[in-house]
Amino acid sequence: MAGWFLKGVALGVKTTKYPRRAEQAPGVSPGLPRPTRFLDAAQAQEVASRCPTGALSASGSEVAVDARKCIHCYRCLRSDGAAMSWSDDYDWADVPESATGQGRPLGFEPRFRRSVNILVVDAGDCGACLNEIAQLAAPQYNLHRLGFFLTPTPRHADLLMVVGPVTDAMRYPLLAAYEAMPEPKRVMAVGTCALGGSVFGPSFIAGGGVAELLPVDVEVPGNPPPPLAILHALRVVSGQIRGARR
């Protein structure tokens, strides 16, 4: 047992400086396409048409990006034709308009500032989002240091993190978990599937995202969103920072 301790110490501190400093290590994010201006409308049209999920939309010679739909297929990047410009950032989380709208004052719960207990429900994800959340516990991210804790039971949970498009069989368990959570509670939709179904839904068996079922308070785009993007979202939901773009 002492050996483990020594080995642990010998490894040194591997934890990211984020959020105090941006993490620059390569490979921490798959990146997202950036809105790009092309030579002409035809080229923009061609680039946008390569997107299989409709995340790109051309207007004139400019191509706009809907990050909520991007699945990082790189078809707009890796091709013989023109390519979108690409960003490697990860602070993507945002508050959906529905959550800021009438009747649901965002007013981030002051009680969430110090510690948030998170229940993760896999509602049909491909395994990537879940694995990225699992990475948050790895030494590189160590989410506990920021006051976030994973809990296995909704009874202790403040935040419901949902991954996956919400499959038919998971609708009821997901609702049951949400209802079993005490107030105040928040819902975070993690990943493109949870935002809109991605390549899986909507269909007879897979839904078109969490918002069909539960009021979503924070959205994290990405397929999967890298751990830092989820960490960013956690900071948004706990009221440490405001959302990304809006």
């Binding site: 049909g124 038919d168 998971m170 899986f200 839904g201 269909s203 068996i205």
Partner: peptide
């Protein structure tokens, strides 16, 4: 199983 059945 098949709580995650997405009918791929």
């Amino acid at each position: 199983l098949f709580f995650k059945y997405r009918a791929i």
